[in-house]
Design a protein around this nucleic acid. Structure first.
Lengths: 256, 256
DNA sequence: AGTCCCCACTTGTATAGACAACTGAACATA
DNA sequence: TATGTTCAGTTGTCTATACAAGTGGGGACT
């Protein structure tokens, strides 16, 4: 079926090479939904790796949502469009580009201020501690999509105001100047109506339907870095969510 | 620190016992955010298991979001309220109860119909194939929260109309009568305004802000079982989402 | 003081082998 | 025909070991 494709001296982990290879077969559509993926045994023999390594590859494939395993039966292609499988934290720029639309943003304000209650709690800082406040209108293909108000503790990046240029991605700026990489974020969405001010900025009628988001973004170690309030046009935005019951081998599940 | 707590003959996997024990320490708050979790070595020695088993326990802990590992340094408590960490697919009844509110629902209609375009596509059935349509108003603490319209292919559970009683959980009914357990779901939310009809059922003013959801629920093998259109009151509902950049060892990440 | 090297500790990857538990089909029995 | 058994194939768990690779500290040297 497949020839030996492993490169043992490339520095790329074997299980990862295997995972990528299987992923490619699935992604390209040559393996259809429900089809059995090669068994741990088979992978191990064919590629000359240990069963545990093959297993690791399959497990990581399952974690991505591209496949699922059944005890005693095998591992199967899951038949999901796994591009949509887990939402990544993308910066606005990245997200727009990944959809093929041209991102722009207009800075309304960039100033320092004192944290209010909600901001302080979200960012785990003291009430009144200094934060940068970056107020922007975000455009997609030259037409307004949302109004965003970002809060970042001054303490974490004291010279942000010098480093940050209006055209650049904030996340990129944080990464390159302070080594801070956003790893995950919590978002809360509410359905609401546009205020007069928001309606003007978004170019929609007053009381048009909008999403009101609050979002807290964290580093890998769980430290909050950014708190954002934003208002999205309801007619240009959908929120996609994957809900899952899965967790690592809940004993309860087996007993049901 | 902790005594030996493993039961090697209980049938419960060792790594799972360990994971649960660590989870308890974190959950209870005795281990604060950022604290180092015992190393693989230490767990292995103290509990008399192999390092790979200890590792398995730690890894599953990380998958739950309760901790994170750093190559060369150790594994640390993540400092997240991990109840909120991943949204589970809960049935309406479960979800309400888990928030301590009393769920009720009023059935408006329960009939058979032919699938329209959107339904057919979501459920992977033919256009016009028979589906059950269950139209309900959902109440929380006796006041309306949403209007829901569920579609389920007749073919999957031909006697659902007999088996299903208005008071019971639909998911429970599917599980007990047909062995179908919902494993995950995709949801899309839009911000919108209530129609006259919806406003009446939800007891809100016309044009009040609402969420419009479409949701497709799947079995473990990726088979779609249920497609739901629902309208939630904007003033009683928030959508919580965790976005994550993590995936199983993306090579790119290391190089950044 | 600073710089480099080495060492101990950590997680990451990989191997080889063992047994348990589950599935489904082929087979034997009543 | 129906039922139970056996068996091969599969995933799940666990052990023991080895080496690679990243981190951080202490110590030696400059």
């Amino acid at each position: 079926m497949w020839p030996a494709f492993l490169d043992r001296y490339s520095g790329v982990p074997l299980y990862y090479q295997i995972q990528q290879h299987l992923l490619e077969e699935i992604r390209s559509g040559s393996w259809k939904a429900g089809r059995a993926v090669p068994s741990e045994q088979e992978i191990a023999q064919r590629l000359g790796v240990s069963r545990m390594t093959a297993r690791h590859a399959l497990k990581s494939l399952c974690n991505l949502g591209a496949a699922y395993s059944q005890h005693g039966k095998g591992t199967f292609v899951s038949g999901l469009k796994f591009e949509k499988n887990f939402r990544q934290v993308l910066s606005f720029s990245e997200e727009m580009r990944s959809r093929g639309t041209r991102p722009q943003s207009k800075v309304l304000q960039f100033r320092q201020a004192e944290s209010d209650n909600e901001v302080a709690e979200a960012l785990h800082i003291g009430l009144g501690e200094k934060v940068f406040v970056l107020h922007r209108v975000r455009l997609a293909d030259s037409s307004p999509l949302c109004v965003e108000c970002t809060h970042i503790p001054v303490r974490l990046c004291p010279e942000l105001q010098k480093k940050f240029k209006p055209r650049m991605s904030l996340y990129k700026c944080l990464l390159e100047n302070y080594g801070m990489q956003i790893d995950f974020a919590d978002e809360v969405a509410e359905a609401s109506l546009a205020t007069a001010e928001e309606a003007r900025l978004l170019r929609v009628p007053k009381k048009a339907p909008v999403f009101r988001f609050t979002r807290t973004a964290y580093l890998r170690n769980g430290k909050p870095v950014e708190f954002v309030r934003s208002v999205y046009r309801g007619d240009r935005c959908k929120v996609v969510n994957r809900l899952s019951r899965r967790m690592e081998f809940s004993g309860e599940r087996a007993k049901l």
